Simulated assay, not measured.
Amino acid sequence: MNEFDSLKGIAKPARRALAGAGYERLEQLTKVTEAELLRLHGMGPRAIEQIRQALAEKGLSFASSS
């Protein structure tokens, strides 16, 4: 079980996309941009928003796109 399985509201396709790309913990997502995650099949804007909120709760954020 990875950390994303415990996040409320993240749809199964998004969780599968994260797992398929090797992401198991929120901290790993601080090294990628939102745009990079949106390229994963099954990942959508709603999932990105939910992950953004979960990151913010831990004082973290996605990598900047610059």
Rank of each mutant, 00 (worst) to 15 (best):
L29K: 07
A11N: 14
E24A: 12
Q53T: 13
F62N: 09
L60Y: 01
T30D: 03
M43Y: 06
E34M: 00
I10P: 14
A19I: 13
K8A: 13
R52E: 10
K8W: 03
K58E: 13
P13S: 00
A63D: 08
R46P: 08
K31Q: 15
L40M: 06
E49I: 08
Y23M: 05
Q50H: 13
G59P: 06
I51E: 06
T30R: 08
E3A: 15
E57Y: 07
Q53F: 09
Y23D: 00
P45K: 15
G9F: 02
I51N: 09
E36S: 02
K58D: 11
A54C: 04
F62R: 10
T30N: 02
A17M: 05
K58F: 07
K12W: 12
F4R: 04
E57N: 08
Y23Q: 03
E36H: 05
V32G: 06
G9M: 00
G44W: 06
Y23E: 03
D5A: 11
E36D: 03
Q53P: 05
L40D: 02
R15H: 10
V32P: 13
L29C: 02
E3D: 11
K8T: 05
T30P: 12
E24G: 11
A56G: 02
K58N: 05
Q53Y: 12
I51D: 09
V32C: 06
S61A: 15
A47T: 05
A35I: 05
I48Q: 09
S6N: 13
L18N: 07
E49L: 09
N2D: 14
L7H: 12
K12P: 12
E34N: 05
S65W: 13
R16H: 15
M43R: 01
I51Q: 04
G42W: 04
A19C: 05
A63R: 14
L60T: 04
S6P: 10
R52V: 00
E36Q: 11
L60A: 02
L60P: 01
E36A: 10
R15L: 06
N2V: 09
H41K: 15
A21E: 03
A11Y: 11
S61R: 13
L26E: 11
Q53A: 13
D5F: 02
K8G: 13
E3N: 11
Q53C: 12
P45F: 07
A56T: 09
S6G: 14
G42S: 01
E57W: 08
L38G: 07
E34S: 10
Q50D: 13
M1W: 11
S64T: 12
V32Y: 01
L60S: 04
I51K: 07
L55S: 07
A11H: 12
L38F: 03
G9H: 05
L26D: 10
V32Q: 03
E49N: 08
L55M: 04
D5C: 06
A54S: 07
M1D: 15
I10W: 05
P45W: 07
E57F: 11
F4D: 00
A35K: 14
F4K: 02
L26N: 12
S6F: 14
R25Q: 08
L29Y: 03
L37T: 00
S64A: 11
G59A: 00
F4E: 05
Y23G: 00
H41N: 15
